[in-house]
Simulated assay, not measured.
Amino acid sequence: MTLAIEEALTVFLLAVAFDILIGEPPVRVHPVVWIGRLISFLRARAGPTKVQGILLAITVIAVSVLAAHLLVRAAHVMPVLPLLVGAYLLKSTFAIRCLLETSSNIGRMIDQDMEEAKKMLPALVGRDTSTLTTAQASSAVIESLSENYVDSILSPIFYYILFAPIGLGLEAAIAFKAISTMDSMIGYKKPGLKELGYAGARLDDLANWIPARLSIILIALARPRGARSAIREAFKYHSATPSPNSGWPMAAAAGSLKIRLEKPGQYILLGENPNPETRDIFRATGLVQSAIALTLAAAFICLLL
């Protein structure tokens, strides 16, 4: 194992430990929050055109990557500090504890107080929650949980592992997070954003293309008795969603758990299956938790090789 890979493995393990044991850092020092502020700053000054959107995307990615690189370089004034800074920055690109806890908390609240659950749901989903039934709210949590497994965990780790051998793992993960944050903030087909957010949205589709398809293997392995159904339904229903990527993990999760998922007025996955109940949220959380464990194990092995 070369020194670079050894350091990459140490940074990865520290980042995972940070996430699981501590969770999200305070908003004022969260790197992704600062990326979001940069996007907001540039958006306020950019025209609603594709060219402006391309320039915004290039600027956000370049500034984010350069800032992360320089922070790690600056930390070399003290031993061990570069590893800690690198781990802190890498941790900001994925959110294991936050995703699992938020999903579980909303699942419990749906059982206790549906109106309060509707107020909590926007932390996970972008749809209107005011008229959702219990089944639709449960579906929304499971959809978001499986989709965010890719976007918020698998993809940044994938790019970290892919570029770690050439010493650019952290930079690749940060670049992905910058793209993902742009998509979540301006990647909408709305007046003023359709053209400006086009580059960010297309980059997000491209960046998640491979991880989304890898996710069905990990989801299948996470629950072996539902593996065949997970793979079969992912290939059958992946194109039912507007996104070219989100349908893969969502359909795989629905197939593994043998439930129906629906975004009212948008799509239905596995319509022949029963609607999800709140208990299915916890089954889905367990499924994704196992898939995350497999992801971390695979990443560890790749860095060792």
Rank of each mutant, 00 (worst) to 15 (best):
M1S: 10
L3Q: 14
E6Y: 09
A8D: 10
L9Y: 09
L9I: 03
F12P: 02
F12C: 01
L14Y: 11
A15W: 08
V16D: 00
V16A: 12
V16F: 03
D19T: 11
D19G: 10
I20H: 09
L21G: 02
I22R: 09
G23K: 03
E24S: 07
E24D: 14
R28E: 10
I39F: 10
R43W: 02
A46T: 05
T49C: 04
Q52C: 09
Q52I: 00
I58Q: 00
V60Q: 04
V63I: 14
A67E: 02
A74Q: 01
A74P: 00
V77Y: 03
P82T: 03
L83Q: 14
L83D: 04
L84N: 09
V85P: 02
L90D: 06
K91H: 13
K91D: 05
R97T: 10
C98E: 13
R108I: 01
Q112N: 07
Q112S: 09
K118W: 01
K119I: 08
A123G: 02
L124E: 06
V125M: 08
T133N: 06
Q136S: 03
A137N: 00
S139Y: 08
N148H: 12
V150T: 13
I153G: 06
I157E: 01
I157Y: 05
I157V: 15
F158N: 00
F158I: 02
Y160V: 09
Y160K: 09
A164V: 09
P165I: 07
P165M: 03
G167M: 11
E171T: 01
E171V: 01
A172I: 08
K177H: 08
I179M: 11
S184I: 09
S184G: 03
I186C: 01
K189Q: 15
K189R: 14
G192V: 08
L193I: 00
E195T: 00
L196A: 11
Y198W: 15
D204R: 04
D205A: 02
L206F: 12
A207M: 09
I210R: 00
A212V: 10
A212E: 04
S215C: 11
I216A: 04
A220I: 05
P224E: 15
A227Q: 13
A227W: 15
S229N: 14
A230M: 13
A230N: 09
I231F: 15
K236F: 10
A240W: 01
A240F: 15
P242S: 12
P242A: 09
S243K: 02
G247L: 05
M250D: 04
A252T: 11
A252E: 12
L257Q: 02
K258W: 03
K258C: 04
I259C: 07
R260M: 14
L261E: 07
L261Q: 07
G265E: 02
Q266D: 12
E272C: 10
P276G: 14
T278W: 07
D280I: 05
I281N: 05
T285W: 06
L296V: 05
L304A: 04
L304K: 14
L305G: 04
